[in-house]
């Protein structure tokens, strides 16, 4: 996946808190960078010495009264479609849950000390960054305990996404380690554990 090898702009921060943030972009730019469960980062210091790390948990395409009327037409006019997507800048909002932060050389899997500022650039994490970040699994607990996100599906999607950052010979081992970690965290809820394991099974 090209997205795993280079950092790219996903959008810009619209609103934020220490638990997560929403970023926005134009509808015409939505592509493989905007994937449920992908790892993103955003600077939380002006000098870019500190980044918050997060997972995309929701992608919302906003409507407006004109768009609602256009979908009611028996045939959607091709030029109007092009116009809507390119000229009218259909807003896309991307929800991100924070799972860690990096300060100096230190990587922490905990909530960041402060949220990013409005209009900060949200970037897709590179494959190397995901590889380093997923050497530890404390962020699993943050995701599983988050009430505002579909936590099981999100964690499974993130694990599958992260697996592609691993070399072929390490990928299976990574997934097994994830499974073991989940077994520990969800030992009190076997139905839930079974479901998440099924979602990440290679």
């Amino acid at each position: 996946m090209a997205v795993m090898t280079q950092s790219e702009i996903v959008g810009r921060v619209l609103r934020a808190s220490t638990t997560g943030f929403d970023c926005g972009t134009r509808g015409s730019t939505i592509d493989e960078r905007h994937v449920f469960g992908s790892f993103v980062k955003v600077p939380i210091a002006d000098d870019r010495s500190m980044y918050a790390y997060g997972l995309i948990y929701a992608i919302r395409i906003e409507d407006d009264p004109l768009a609602r009327e256009l979908v009611m037409a028996s045939i959607v006019d091709n030029t109007a479609l092009l116009d809507q997507r390119e000229n009218r800048m259909v807003p896309v909002e991307i929800g991100v849950i924070n799972i860690g932060f990096q300060s100096g050389g230190m990587l922490m899997q905990a909530l960041p000390p402060r949220p990013p500022l409005s209009l900060s650039e949200v970037q897709l994490c590179s494959g190397d960054e995901i590889y380093v970040f997923t050497q530890r699994f404390e962020f699993f607990r943050l995701v599983l305990s988050a009430s505002e996100v579909p936590s099981d599906e999100l964690l499974a999607a993130a694990v599958r996404y992260a697996a592609w950052a691993y070399p072929d010979q390490e990928r299976y081992e990574f997934l097994v380690r994830c499974g073991r970690q989940l077994a520990g965290l969800l030992s009190h809820d076997l139905k839930r554990l079974t479901r998440v394991l099924a979602l990440i099974k290679p």
Binding site: L66, E69, L70, V71, M72, A73, S74, D77, D83, N87
Partner: peptide, 21 residues
């Protein structure tokens, strides 16, 4: 007629709607 058919239930030339917007 074609312009007035673009906006579903609202029968008004699409080009004028956009110019107004």
């Amino acid at each position: 007629l074609h312009q007035c058919g673009i906006q579903g239930r609202k029968h008004y030339p699409y080009a004028l709607t956009r110019a107004d917007e």
